[in-house]
């Protein structure tokens, strides 16, 4: 075999092995979580309905209660709160750094935002615990400070960089031609940004928001530190609650593999996995839909 041919074959084989390892990993993780997570329902005979809608969580009880709804509800509420806080700020910042002051944006804002991405989540949680929780406790009556609000704010800070930089990319990708067309029609800069640039970049901005959402949904550590970890259903955003991720991290040390309590945590993991599939699907759908 000639040297070139041999190099070709080697290159193809090596890359194929890498791709195969990735694929096998993904499939086996999915299979593992799936089999463990479904065991709760098919081996331990917990009803799926109870798991998804029940509000009582006491796996060690006699009989055990497996209502994971407070966790599911907590995850969604905290995530939506985080995106509701982060999205307007991020989109505003992205507009500023691409449309208003591109130079300042590239030189100062972008590096600062990248810095925020690099901070580990335990540090965010620690700051939340030391600053935010006492602040909420002292500002509002009848609250310990550990709350949905604290979790939402900490998460929003964590996803602002993601949403901002992706939204900025989407805005930058809007052809200059369209801005010129709008300005040449006598539109002001603001009208141009609002009615042309933002509209054209909308799919990209939505994708950025969904990615931020999926990060918020999956974040465990920082949330667990500030959310309070109670299993009661919250009645206000100042109440403590729990999320799927913090429920898993808080409880996994106390359960023994193979028990129903352990399997129930796997069911929660399975739910997280399904949600991340949903987020990916959502991003695909947004990507496919053209603005017009």
């Amino acid at each position: 075999m000639s040297k070139q041919k041999w190099e070709n074959t080697l290159g193809r084989t090596l890359t194929l092995i890498c791709a195969a390892i990735l694929l096998i990993t993904a499939i086996s993780i999915t299979y593992f979580i799936g089999s463990k997570g479904l065991a709760t329902f098919f081996k331990n005979d917990v009803s799926i309905g109870e798991f998804l809608t029940g509000t009582q969580w006491n796996p060690d009880g006699e009989p055990g209660k497996f209502g994971a709804f407070p966790f599911i509800f907590g995850s969604f509420v905290v995530t939506f709160l985080a995106v509701a806080i982060a999205a307007p700020l991020s989109i505003g910042a992205a507009i500023y750094m691409t449309e208003i002051k591109p130079r300042f944006g590239k030189k100062v804002l972008k590096p600062v935002i990248e810095l925020l991405v690099g901070i580990p989540s335990v540090v965010y949680g620690f700051i939340g615990l030391s600053v935010l929780v006492p602040f909420i406790r002292n500002t509002f009556d009848d609250t310990m400070g550990f709350s949905i609000l604290a979790g939402g704010i900490v998460l929003s800070v964590m996803i602002i960089p993601t949403i901002t930089s992706l939204a900025a990319d989407a805005l930058e990708a809007v052809p200059q031609d369209l801005r010129n067309a709008s300005l040449a029609l006598g539109a002001t800069r603001w009208q141009t940004i609002w009615r042309v640039v933002l509209r054209t970049a909308l799919p990209g901005i939505l994708t950025a928001m969904v990615l931020g959402m999926s990060r918020a949904f999956g974040e465990a550590l920082a949330v667990q530190m500030v959310i309070g970890n109670t299993t009661a259903l919250p009645t206000s955003i100042l109440d403590p609650t729990n999320t799927l991720t913090s429920g898993i991290t808080a409880n996994m040390g106390n359960t023994i593999a193979g028990t129903v309590a352990n399997n129930a945590l796997w069911s929660m993991s399975l739910l997280l996995l399904i949600m991340s599939f949903v987020f990916i699907l959502l991003i695909r759908l947004i990507g496919k839909k053209k603005v017009m």
């Binding site: 052809p175 031609d177 369209l178 067309a181 040449a184 029609l185 054209t200 053209k290």
Partner: peptide
């Protein structure tokens, strides 16, 4: 003073 550019540049609208 209206303007039309070298490359057609309709908006991504109807």
């Amino acid at each position: 003073v209206g303007m039309v550019f070298q490359k057609p540049n309709p908006f991504y609208k109807s």
